[in-house]
């Protein structure tokens, strides 16, 4: 694609307060090498349609604000180069499976409510250490690997938009909250599996996943939520059959030596700040 070319953006416009139904508008945008879909939207907003609404922040695939449906695929606008689409037309719509606030802005409130319901943080019984931590908990590299890839989620909503179960069942938590439920339950520092099980082990819960894996295919950060959901199912079934041996959350913290240092773990370096 040469630099003098123009690329056409076909954008779904909708203001629920004034429009009876969504409409489509096409814009001719000058193409530049390295141009992302978000760059194109900015150009349109500056030059052709100042009323165009879209959400963005970091412009570098970290904040997860600019999730939208680009040429039929839910992904990040800032992370998608126009040239990589290999299409004469860039079709942009808001993320499916969410209500639209305006134009390309989805209402992500239900997603964050479901995320909150699975208690996405470390749950432990030692409240004192939780509220006023004295140091860091021990964790081996192997224990870190158990959940690391699921912690790369940026809550952009792409997986939720790609999920076929979300499309038919509004009570289904969705791939992001379920993957995060596993992410925290698999953390060796956590002891909140039973509490999270209450939130996901129910009708329209984790077992409603059909393992279509569209969520994993859509994730712009390479997270595999479908795998996390299957691992969560396995853990719940094993827990029911009493085949799952729950480990006590790791208790040792640097400095306190409450349980002693485990074998093979080298001495922690001196604190850089006294």
């Amino acid at each position: 694609m040469s630099e003098s070319k123009t690329i056409h953006f076909r954008i779904r416009k909708f203001n629920p307060e004034t429009d009876p139904a969504p409409s489509w508008k096409t814009f001719a945008v000058p193409f530049a090498k390295g141009m992302t879909v978000l760059d194109g939207l900015h150009w349109i907003k500056r030059n052709q349609d100042t009323g165009l609404a879209f959400r963005y922040s970091c412009r570098m695939g970290v904040c997860g604000s600019c999730g939208m449906l680009i040429n039929g695929r839910p992904t990040l606008a800032c992370n998608t180069q126009v040239a990589a689409l290999k299409a004469a037309m860039v079709v942009v719509a808001p993320l499916p499976n969410f209500h639209t606030v305006r134009d390309l802005v989805p209402d992500l409130t239900p997603m964050f409510e479901k995320h909150q319901a699975i208690r996405p943080f470390i749950l432990r019984e030692d409240k004192g250490e939780m509220d006023a931590p004295t140091a860091e908990f021990y964790q081996t590299p192997h224990e870190l690997e158990e959940y690391l890839q699921f912690s790369f989620c940026i809550r952009c909503g792409a997986c939720m938009a790609a999920c076929p179960t979300m499309a038919t069942d509004r009570d289904y938590p969705g791939p992001m909250p379920l993957a995060q439920a596993y992410r925290y339950s698999a953390d060796s520092r956590d002891g909140g599996f039973a509490e999270r099980a209450k939130a996901v082990d129910r009708k329209s819960g984790v077992f409603s996943c059909h393992f279509g894996s569209e969520c994993s295919a859509a994730c712009p950060k390479g997270v595999d939520p479908a795998k996390a959901i299957q691992l969560m199912k396995r853990r719940l079934v094993f827990d029911y059959l009493r085949l799952f041996k729950a480990k006590k959350p790791c208790g040792g913290v640097h400095g306190q030596r409450t349980t002693g240092r485990r074998e093979g773990i080298p001495e922690a370096p001196e604190y850089t700040i006294k």
Partner: peptide, 12 residues
């Protein structure tokens, strides 16, 4: 009711 019970019996 925990759905994992029904699911486990479904598999069995």
């Amino acid at each position: 009711m925990r759905h994992s019970r029904l699911w486990t019996w479904h598999i069995l």
